[in-house]
C-alpha cells in the first residue's frame, strides 16, 4: 500500500464521501495540499484558497478541488483511499492515497495564533 506518512499511527481510513463533506466545509478557507510519492521525497505542494469542490460527469463520483480559481487537482474514488488524521488543531487533515503511488495530504492552513490560542 502506498504512502505511509509520518502520521501513520494516528490516521484512520474513512469513506470518500465523508472526505467530500469535510472538504466542502473548507470551501473559502486557505488550504495546503502536499503531494508525495510512495518511498520517495517529492517535495511538491500547493497552497491557496479552496474555491470549489466539483463533482465530475458522467456519474459525479470523481471530484476536482479548485484552488485560487486556477489550480487544483482531481481525485477518483475508484482508485483512491482516504485517511483522516487527528484533529490536533480542530481542523485535522486528510490524506488521499491513489493506487499509482501518489498521495495528497490536504490540510487547512491555520495561523499560529489561531492554532494555539492559549499561548497568546
Amino acid at each position: 500500500m502506498p504512502a505511509p506518512s509520518s502520521h501513520m499511527d494516528e490516521q484512520r481510513q474513512i469513506e470518500f464521501t465523508d472526505a467530500l463533506g469535510w472538504l466542502q466545509g473548507l470551501i473559502g478557507a486557505e488550504i495546503k495540499a502536499t503531494v508525495n510519492y510512495y518511498g520517495q521525497f517529492f517535495g511538491c505542494g500547493l497552497q491557496g484558497a479552496l474555491n470549489r469542490v466539483e463533482t465530475l460527469p458522467p456519474d459525479h463520483e470523481a471530484i476536482a478541488l479548485v484552488m485560487d480559481e486556477k489550480t487544483g487537482f482531481y481525485l477518483d474514488p475508484a482508485d483512491t483511499e482516504v485517511y483522516a488524521g487527528p484533529e490536533i488543531t480542530g481542523d485535522g487533515w486528510l490524506e488521499f492515497r491513489t493506487a499509482f503511488g501518489i498521495s495528497v495530504l490536504v490540510e487547512r492552513v491555520v495561523a499560529e495564533d489561531d492554532a494555539f490560542p492559549m499561548l497568546r
Binding site: L56, P57, P58, D59, A62, D76
Partner: peptide, 28 residues
Amino acid sequence: QFLRFYGGQADDHALRWMLLVTKRCAWA
C-alpha cells in the same frame, strides 16, 4: 460532458479533466 460542464481554464486542467471523465465514460 466537456461542452456541458467544464468550468475550468485553458491549461493542463482541461486535459486532466478530460482524461478522468473519458475513463469514467468508458466505464459507464
